[in-house]
Design a protein around this nucleic acid. Structure first.
Lengths: 239, 239
DNA sequence: CGATCGTTTGAGTTTGATCAAATGTGGTGG
DNA sequence: CCACCACATTTGATCAAACTCAAACGATCG
């Protein structure tokens, strides 16, 4: 099947790939691997191996800290490419772990090399992906540095909702967001206790519900406004 | 002269460019432009124009916030490329401003396109630059999210020192770091008052001095250790 | 049916923010 | 050369957001 459908849908925000190039891309995939929930895909300091494109499930980039805590620095959802950098960097500067069971399409670096050599449009599309990743990382700096706990969490939820919507993973106004409060805390640089209280505040304001890995947004406009969320940095064309 | 010497020196950490490719790169530069201190080079929301490579001076990426404050999300120093993204993103998701007078080499997007089409090694080198930028942005997330004010500032100073050293901009154990305490505050997500106190703490500990735009590090090993600084994310080969 | 993990609640503490004002410092014009 | 202005730095006092510690409660699972 079309294992890369989410990826193609995402990059169409930049430039749609013609069917022939989509097919060539699909053909470059050597296979699909399955990973357990809460499993490391890559560890900081190691050499990245193959390129993995998320087909199903969710994962994150994180950095371990000297006192045993961790800081999550980004999320992966279907259509995201896990270590494009495999090419160019010899040591990973962060780790990657799954939240859920993950299914990933695997590509050998050589296959990627051949593919991008042949199709400049694909090269541009992939480069665009890394630029968007970078833009998201920068928005996280702002989010963590400037916003209050309440705004910060609201902002993250907006971002995840928009990103899921861009690849067709919303159901009504809900998305799968299989995170524990502790994982949310690691993402937002908040304590788990404060995450819990902030979450209750968001619920009490009837903005959303969040349980059993399902985030439902009851009032997106209000949430966006309270979070100071401007989707421009996601570069997703249509708002 | 060799206007791109700093850039070539930086990318040599990835893969040295042979003289012929350096020359072709230089030839693609259409000219040099000068900018005043504290001037915007690009504004958020606008379409990026040309590609600018910093030849001399310092600048930053920043985002304005609704209450008029700003968050600086990265620094540019000589050898850094200012908007490679000019290519691929139609609207800037952040602004760029100078700290000092800046001299920048200008390249038309078409010239860049031609250059990268002809020299795959240059393409890889530039892509590597964006990956390093991304890695730095992620480390900033950790820095702002996890570290105390003291560690945070120490970490930033370590980073800037290492980055300057990688392009040959250290003098003894000092670097030009022409920032006011307010600009430091905008970078570290701290209040100016707290920046001042933290700076005094660093000075009192005899770790460094910072005045008149000059940062002198008296005990780099101790500073690195207190900051929890691991230079791996800068991908600069030699430590 | 414990055991484990995640969530919730309470109480006290801390880091860093805010507000306000004093003190340098460098530049400009008279 | 001095007066003045704008701006950066320093200091003091108070406040608040979020953290820590601790414990209870609730699911889920072998």
């Amino acid at each position: 099947m079309n294992r890369l459908a989410h990826l193609f849908r995402k990059v169409a925000n930049f430039e749609p790939l013609p069917p022939a190039e989509q097919a060539a891309f699909e053909d470059s995939v050597s296979g699909v691997r399955r990973f357990h929930a809460h499993q490391d895909l890559i560890q900081e300091g190691s050499a990245p191996d193959g390129i993995k494109i998320i087909v199903e499930g969710m994962a994150c980039r994180y950095k371990m800290l000297p006192d045993g805590r961790r800081q999550i620095v980004g999320y992966f959802l279907p259509g995201d490419i896990c270590d494009l950098r495999a090419y160019l960097l010899n040591r990973m500067d962060h780790s990657v772990a799954t939240f859920t069971r993950v299914e990933a399409a695997i590509m050998a670096p050589e296959a990627m090399q051949a593919l991008t050599a042949k199709f400049p449009r694909i090269t541009r599309a992939l480069w665009w992906c890394t630029l968007v990743d970078e833009a998201i990382a920068r928005e996280w700096i702002v989010n963590i540095g400037y916003r209050t706990a309440f705004e910060r969490m609201a902002h993250l939820f907006c971002e995840m909702f928009m990103r899921c919507r861009a690849v067709g993973l919303t159901r009504d106004n809900g998305i799968q967001l299989p995170l524990t409060q502790i994982e949310l805390a690691d993402s937002l640089a908040l304590s788990p206790v404060h995450v819990n209280r902030t979450l209750m505040e968001l619920r009490r304001a009837r903005l959303l519900s969040f349980q059993a890995g399902l985030l439902t947004i009851h009032d997106l406009d209000e949430l966006r406004s309270l979070a100071g969320f401007d989707p421009n940095y996601l570069h997703l064309g249509a708002v």
